[in-house]
Nucleic acid binder design. Structure first.
Lengths: 251, 251
DNA sequence: AGCACGTTTCGGCGGCCGCCGAAACGTCCC
DNA sequence: GGGACGTTTCGGCGGCCGCCGAAACGTGCT
């Protein structure tokens, strides 16, 4: 499937033959451009954006954005839905999101943002944000450390959910999905904190529960999240998240 | 550390300020070149190569290879050791290897290799190879499925080592490392088979044990591995790996 | 000391690619 | 139907970057 999509881009005909090596450079080339990379980073919020929104977000002409989107969709990194005169686009899969996430963690830090609003938005992201389907930023790291402190997650030999963690999550109304091959809890290196936060099925379930229950809200409509008064009580009480983090991630 | 190394490349001065977003495009640009990508792929065997070896491997002039290596080392993706007139270079860390590995799995398949020797080498890689520190290719996937069949690894809620698996591995002389934060068993999508094989601490320990015990050898000195007669007996007997795979991965 | 060899630096060439504006297309709304 | 709007296609421009060869440097070997 992915291979077929790629054939649109490559000039030579890729055959179905076994043993052909992966074209690492072709994949990297797609993300090697500032504009395309910013598209993917923006789409890490898990929502579908229109072509025009992405163009404005990246500061390029609509025509330029259109060409980039065609490339990313053709490569199978993005999935698109046409609705009327709009072209909605989102990350193709959770695997794609995890790849971009992993690359972001390994990437160098860019120059700091310019402008007051940009700085403000950047700080909001550093305090608390979603990373496709789980929590990240200072808030995400604090939650990870809190549940570790409570013995919900054991980090020896890789992160794993303890029995106590299972009941603790259930007490919060967090419903874990039916058994799949997806890891229950996965470690994900946070690119602002340089410390791990909780991803995987547990991270996703906890995050969606927090948004659904109103413990967290998205003020700007983007990736940034803010802790509500109710959320503050729950996170401090049930999880033991330090007040300092909750304060700065609230308001 | 990584950030410092990056400052060599970036023209603007990256500050230490919090909240700066990762420069995804900068990282991707490093791998967006055929030559640099082939360097990284070659280095996935975990060994240290000299600059000249990599140049010949990629089919470029030594001067070109030198410049690429300076960029990759400066970015922190590669680590170098100077010995006399040689410049030895290897992947900087296991995390770097895992990133390249993950990207390779998501990358499109390149055009099939040209030439008899290239095809031969490609087929050898497809049959069995190492992926930094664990087994991959048809052999790696077969081993993963065999240990699953034996109940050594449970895939529900993510891969995990069972108690039976722990004793089974001990019986083979496979010594697991002291407890670390590294996952014991990690799933890694094989880019030839499109099915998962076993990575993580267990995958690494099993692979190193197999090489140390002479069950596997590296005929070409590269990433390809071959099953010896002794290894064939062990893998078929203790793990239940099908004969068909062992036959084609042997000889 | 002298030579061989691996590596590096520097110019310069060539190609690729991201950008925009203009124009056209299709959809939605009045 | 007509106008507004989101999107797309196409030329053309400009810049970046990967490549090589030549020359220089440093090391090891005889």
């Amino acid at each position: 499937m992915l291979r077929l999509a790629w054939s649109v881009l490559t000039t030579t005909q890729p055959t179905t033959g076994e043993g052909t090596e992966p074209d690492l450079a072709a994949l990297a080339s797609l993300l090697a451009d500032r504009t395309r990379a910013s598209f993917c980073t923006a789409l890490l919020d898990g929502r579908a954006w229109t072509a025009g929104e992405l163009a404005r977000h990246a500061g390029v002409a609509p025509s330029t954005a259109s060409e980039h989107l065609t490339a990313l969709v053709g490569a199978g990194l993005l999935a698109e839905v046409r609705q009327g005169r709009h072209r909605y686009v989102r990350l193709a899969s959770r695997e794609t999101a995890e790849l971009i996430e992993a690359m972001s963690a390994a990437a160098p830090k860019a120059a700091p943002p310019r402008g007051l609003t940009a700085v403000h938005r950047s700080n909001a992201l550093a305090r608390g944000r979603t990373c496709y389907d789980h929590l990240a930023g200072a808030l995400g790291v604090a939650v990870a450390e809190a549940v570790t402190e409570r013995g919900w997650i054991d980090w020896e030999d890789g992160p794993s959910l303890t029995a106590g963690g299972r009941t603790g999550l259930a007490g919060l109304g967090v419903e874990l999905p039916a058994r799949t091959r997806r890891p229950l809890v996965r470690s994900c290196l946070d690119w602002t904190e340089r410390r791990p936060h909780v991803a995987g099925a547990v991270g996703a379930a906890l995050c969606s529960r927090a948004l659904e229950a109103g413990w967290l809200v998205r003020p700007g409509g983007g990736r940034a999240v803010r802790v509500t008064a109710e959320g503050r009580a729950v996170l401090a009480g049930a999880l033991g998240v330090p007040d300092g983090v909750l304060e700065s991630a609230g308001a």
